[in-house]
Simulated scan of single mutants.
Amino acid sequence: MARASSIRNDPSLRGRPRRQDLEHRHHKLLETAMGLFIENGLAVTMDTIASAANVSKRTLYASYPDKISLFLAVLEWLSSEGTKAALSLPPDMPLVPALVRYGEALFDHYSAPRTAAFLRLMQKEKERVPDLERMMREEVVRDQVMPLVHYLEAQFPETPDDRRLFVAARMHVRNVIGEISDAYADGRVPDAIASRGFLQSSAEILSLGILRNGLTEQSDV
């Protein structure tokens, strides 16, 4: 009879991997792929990615039938993982400080070296990846606009389904991303501290615009 320790150490006899382990392996794969895309662009091969991530080619192709689908998966992962924690706001936080904090979180996300490098790569590869532009817009809405919409819904409970909240959130995110893009265009690394004046004024203007539309902050109700 095999000893218990031998059974535990024999991969062929172990049970199915835990969900947490599978998620960790998947994240490792995407992170490895992102690094290779940044280094080599879309010239990198799926074989190279599989080898570097320590997964079989069969496993890789089962999840991602081609390089473009893997590239788009890295975009989705980078957007969701990089922003969902940083962009959460306490529902009782006053509007202007919350908008400033949200902008600072976006600056932190986009100024991370690997994020910035992957974004630069995406700009180069847009013509080769037809769905890239559309996916970039969808990711911004899902991962950066909608968390702000949820905060605004808590701030303005009388109008939880009002499209004005979505428009306001999208405007703020676009303003901040525009400032970040200008920094990159000027050869600068986006810096929330250096842009604090812009973030403050943008938050104040947006706050006034929201309130002029007839919405009342929860704290004033």
Rank of each mutant, 00 (worst) to 15 (best):
residue 28 K to Y: 01
residue 29 L to K: 10
residue 32 T to Q: 07
residue 35 G to A: 03
residue 36 L to C: 04
residue 36 L to M: 10
residue 37 F to S: 08
residue 38 I to K: 11
residue 39 E to N: 07
residue 40 N to A: 08
residue 41 G to R: 03
residue 43 A to Y: 12
residue 43 A to Q: 15
residue 46 M to V: 05
residue 47 D to V: 08
residue 47 D to S: 12
residue 49 I to D: 01
residue 51 S to C: 08
residue 53 A to D: 05
residue 54 N to G: 07
residue 56 S to L: 05
residue 58 R to Q: 13
residue 58 R to N: 12
residue 58 R to H: 14
residue 59 T to D: 04
residue 60 L to V: 06
residue 60 L to E: 04
residue 62 A to F: 04
residue 63 S to A: 11
residue 67 K to D: 00
residue 70 L to Y: 05
residue 70 L to T: 03
residue 70 L to M: 11
residue 71 F to R: 00
residue 72 L to T: 07
residue 72 L to Q: 10
residue 76 E to Y: 11
residue 77 W to E: 11
residue 77 W to G: 03
residue 80 S to T: 13
residue 84 K to Y: 10
residue 85 A to S: 13
residue 86 A to T: 13
residue 88 S to V: 10
residue 89 L to A: 08
residue 91 P to D: 14
residue 93 M to E: 03
residue 97 P to C: 02
residue 99 L to Y: 07
residue 102 Y to E: 12
residue 102 Y to Q: 08
residue 103 G to P: 02
residue 105 A to W: 05
residue 106 L to D: 00
residue 111 S to F: 01
residue 112 A to E: 11
residue 115 T to R: 06
residue 115 T to G: 00
residue 116 A to R: 10
residue 117 A to M: 06
residue 118 F to Y: 15
residue 120 R to H: 04
residue 126 K to I: 15
residue 126 K to G: 09
residue 126 K to A: 14
residue 126 K to N: 09
residue 127 E to W: 01
residue 129 V to F: 12
residue 129 V to W: 13
residue 130 P to T: 06
residue 132 L to P: 04
residue 136 M to D: 09
residue 137 R to K: 15
residue 138 E to L: 15
residue 139 E to K: 01
residue 143 D to Y: 06
residue 143 D to A: 13
residue 146 M to D: 14
residue 146 M to A: 11
residue 147 P to H: 04
residue 155 Q to M: 15
